[in-house]
């Protein structure tokens, strides 16, 4: 469990990082928190010839909050985002989801943007980005582009990031005022990838959920009939979720169990989000 040989690059600025990445093309791999990449390299499941360590690029460890969005810079660690008071006030769902990401020691190093770029179908943050109609800002030596979540996640461990590009930020859109959010999971152990997980946003006239572990990637389900001040139409929700998911068995759970959990957790997440919507009785 030692990585194959690689060349290590440590750019000191964004332009330098982008130049290095441009020169390396497909041979270059960005190292930020390294919490997924380094184990993969140690097991030689990933063997990039060049590692571009962006940890010394200034200006990327940012959490920006305004009236519309929370924008997370490439080097903001999960724990930084999790504990950012302004980000929590603006978008509680981020903290609600981040608490399910592995363990504090991993969240101290792992980056939120890195998790999105890694594109693990069982990870929490891709689901949150989808749920909030977020986007990822990609920079290369030539240009910058903004990719919507729906087109960013292409498949398991596959995203729209191209060789030579660096994901410099992720933008999470704040839901409409008066919305409530929740993130619930069933894991085998605390901090494990979810057997099934559900994030929910319930607004005045809309509701949607994003599910983990029941498809090749996060599954977004809009529930237009589930209105905030009305009791949810359980049968309608069940039917919409049932139609969207396609769980598979693995060593931790049968497909039927995952399907069952999806419905249970959707109910729980919606109820919790509904309960948390401002203006409702505690």
């Amino acid at each position: 469990m030692k990585p194959a040989p690689f060349t290590y690059h440590r750019p000191r600025g964004l332009d330098e990082a982008l130049e290095v990445l441009a020169a390396l093309g497909e041979a270059g791999k960005v190292l930020a928190g390294g919490q997924s990449l380094v184990p993969l390299m140690s097991m030689r499941l990933s063997a990039p010839a060049h590692l571009v360590d962006v940890n010394h690029v200034p200006g990327l460890a940012t959490v920006h909050v305004d009236e519309h969005v929370v924008r997370i810079g490439a080097l903001a660690r999960h724990s930084q985002v999790e504990h950012d008071a302004a980000a929590y006030d603006a978008l509680p769902l981020l903290r609600q989801a981040l608490r399910h990401v592995a363990h504090p020691t991993i969240r101290n190093r792992g980056t939120t943007v890195g998790s999105l770029v890694h594109g693990d179908p069982a990870a929490e943050l891709p689901a949150v980005l989808l749920l909030l109609d977020g986007s990822v800002t990609l920079r290369s030596a030539e240009r910058a582009r903004e990719v919507e979540a729906a087109s960013f996640f292409i498949g398991p461990m596959e995203t729209a990031l191209r060789p030579g590009e660096l994901a410099v930020a992720a933008t999470f859109r704040r839901p409409a005022t008066g919305s409530g959010t929740a993130f619930v999971e069933v894991t085998r152990r605390h901090g494990d990838y979810a057997v099934c997980g559900v994030g929910a946003v319930v607004g005045a006239s809309s509701a949607r959920v994003a599910l983990l572990g029941v498809g090749p990637g996060p599954v977004l389900v809009d529930l237009p009939d589930a209105v905030r001040d009305e009791p949810l139409d359980d049968e309608r929700v069940h039917a919409l979720v049932e139609e969207a998911i396609d769980p598979e068995a693995d060593i931790h759970a049968s497909a039927d169990y995952r399907r069952h959990l999806a419905h249970v957790l959707v109910r729980r997440a919606l109820a919790e989000a509904h309960h948390r919507a401002p203006g409702r009785a505690a």
Binding site: R188, V195, A253, S254, D256, Y257, H260
Partner: peptide, 11 residues
């Protein structure tokens, strides 16, 4: 026994 197995036993 895992939760998944308990679920299958219940079924």
């Amino acid at each position: 026994i895992s939760p998944s197995q308990l679920f299958e036993l219940r079924r």
